[in-house]
C-alpha cells in the first residue's frame, strides 16, 4: 500500500515536471512569462514595464503611466533613461532597426501590437515587450 502511494506521487510529479518543461519549450515567450511574475511584483499600481530583447541582451525599463499615454510615449519616457528610439518609416531602438531579415516585434501583455505605436494606449501594469527577431 505504501509502495503504491509512493508510485502515484512519483508519476504525478513526473507529469507536472514534463508539463512545465513543455510549456517552457513550446511557449516562445515562456521566458518572459516567468519574468512577468517577478516583474509584476516589482511594479507599483500606476507603473508599466518595457522590456527590450535584442537577442541575447535585454534592457528593462519601468515608469509611471499617465492618462492617454501611448506605446510611443513609453519609448519617449524611457529615452530619459538613455534609450535611443525613433519611429519613422520603421522602428529603430538603440541602433537596431528593421531590415529585410530582422525587425522589431512588440507585444502588449503577450499579444502582438498591430496598431501604430502612436495610437496603442497603455495602462498601468501593462508589460510591453519588443523583440528584435528574424522575419518568418
Amino acid at each position: 500500500m505504501k509502495k503504491r502511494a509512493i508510485f502515484i506521487i512519483l508519476v504525478v510529479s513526473v507529469v507536472i515536471v514534463i508539463a512545465c518543461a513543455l510549456a517552457i519549450f513550446f511557449t516562445e515567450k515562456g521566458k518572459f512569462v516567468f519574468s512577468y511574475g517577478k516583474a509584476v511584483a516589482g511594479l507599483s499600481a500606476n507603473e508599466a514595464l518595457l522590456i527590450l530583447d535584442y537577442g541575447g541582451k535585454e534592457r528593462w525599463f519601468k515608469g509611471e503611466v499617465v492618462e492617454n499615454m501611448t506605446a510611443e510615449n513609453v519609448f519617449m519616457a524611457a529615452s530619459s533613461a538613455g534609450l535611443s528610439f525613433s519611429d519613422g518609416a520603421s522602428i529603430s531602438i538603440d541602433g537596431f532597426f528593421d531590415t529585410g531579415q530582422t525587425k522589431w516585434q512588440c507585444y502588449l501583455s503577450g499579444k502582438v501590437i498591430t496598431k501604430n505605436l502612436s495610437v496603442q494606449k497603455i495602462r498601468p501594469k501593462d508589460k510591453i515587450i519588443c523583440k528584435y527577431q528574424k522575419i518568418d
Partner: peptide
C-alpha cells in the same frame, strides 16, 4: 488632437 500631461521619467532597471 489629444494633449497629455508631461511624460514621467522612466528608469532602467536590472532584468529579474
Amino acid at each position: 488632437i489629444i494633449v497629455i500631461d508631461p511624460l514621467p521619467k522612466w528608469k532602467e532597471i536590472t532584468p529579474f
